Simulated assay, not measured.
Amino acid sequence: MGIALGPNRYGKAETRVVRVTRDGDVHRVKDLNVSVALSGDMTEVHLRGDNAAVLPTDTQKNTVFALARKHGIASAEEFALLLARHFTGSQPTIRTARVSVEEYAWDRIPVTGHSFVRRGQEVRTARVVHSEEGAHVVSGVRDLTVLNSTGSEFRGYIRDEYTTLPEAADRILATDVHAEWRHLTPEGDWDASHAEVRRILLETFAGTYSRSLQQTLYAMGRRVLEERPEICEVRLAMPNKHHFVVDLEPFGMDNPNEVFFAADRPYGLIEGTVLRDDAPAAEEAWQ
């Protein structure tokens, strides 16, 4: 029986870096959580413990801070590209660099130019995979919580001996959108593109009469591809945050779809991919 080393990578996870850009009395804050994973000529370190090809993970952490100081942080995508290109370009043993970024948004408090308030739970994400074959950029958003108080139904599904769920002709539809979208090229106006995709996702969720969360997911991904030519693939994960009408009859009251119980678990998890027919394959961009 033969035994061989399979695919592998290593890196520094979750380096938290905050970069303050000062323009006189007006400041700008970029708050990122950066994870790096490198792969390449790593056979000897696995088989013999020879570290000659290994860039220490502590060095990777320091590089995040150093490049944030040297180049600033224009956007999550641009900073991820900068780091990935640095690691593959400066180290001959590193063939592929994957840099994943979470960005936490801060809004300026108008009283001063240097006071900020954290913007909810929504997180902007970016992931760059750079190798000798080129670079792939995947942008995204996580924990974008949305709710339609009407305009949604759920009927006509399979019923068997274990089915108790009644059909709903008018229900609340709520979810936390986790969306990622792949760019055709590693070049672009990342902030403008992200803002537009986010707008499209929200407008489509709000404007789609939903017969299932799957239908809404597809409509959201499809419209992104229709309106944003720089995007070739959209992947979405949307938990169905169930809201059940509370039975108030024991208290002598009716409930015309006004009072609900919000259940946090268990929840339905709807996932799907929408892509162009001619989208180039790039599964490595998602790994």
Rank of each mutant, 00 (worst) to 15 (best):
G6H: 03
G6Q: 09
P7I: 06
R9I: 00
Y10F: 07
G11H: 02
A13F: 01
E14S: 10
V17C: 11
R19A: 09
G24C: 11
V26Q: 08
H27L: 00
G40I: 02
T43N: 13
V45L: 03
L47A: 10
R48A: 13
A52V: 06
A53S: 11
R69N: 12
S75I: 15
E78K: 08
H86P: 01
H86A: 04
P92T: 08
T93G: 11
I94D: 05
V101E: 00
W106F: 13
D107S: 15
R108K: 11
P110F: 07
H114Y: 13
H114R: 12
R127V: 14
V128R: 00
G134P: 02
G140F: 07
L147P: 14
L165P: 00
A168E: 14
A169F: 04
R171W: 04
I172Y: 06
T175W: 10
T175V: 10
T175R: 06
T175A: 04
V177Q: 14
H178N: 15
A179W: 01
E180R: 15
R182L: 15
R182D: 12
L184G: 14
E187W: 05
G188E: 06
D189S: 13
L202V: 14
G207M: 04
L213T: 10
Q214Y: 12
Y218Q: 11
L225S: 09
R228C: 09
L236M: 10
M238N: 07
P239N: 00
K241F: 02
H242Q: 08
L248G: 09
P266Q: 09
G268Y: 03
L269E: 07
G272R: 04
G272H: 05
R276K: 07
A281V: 04
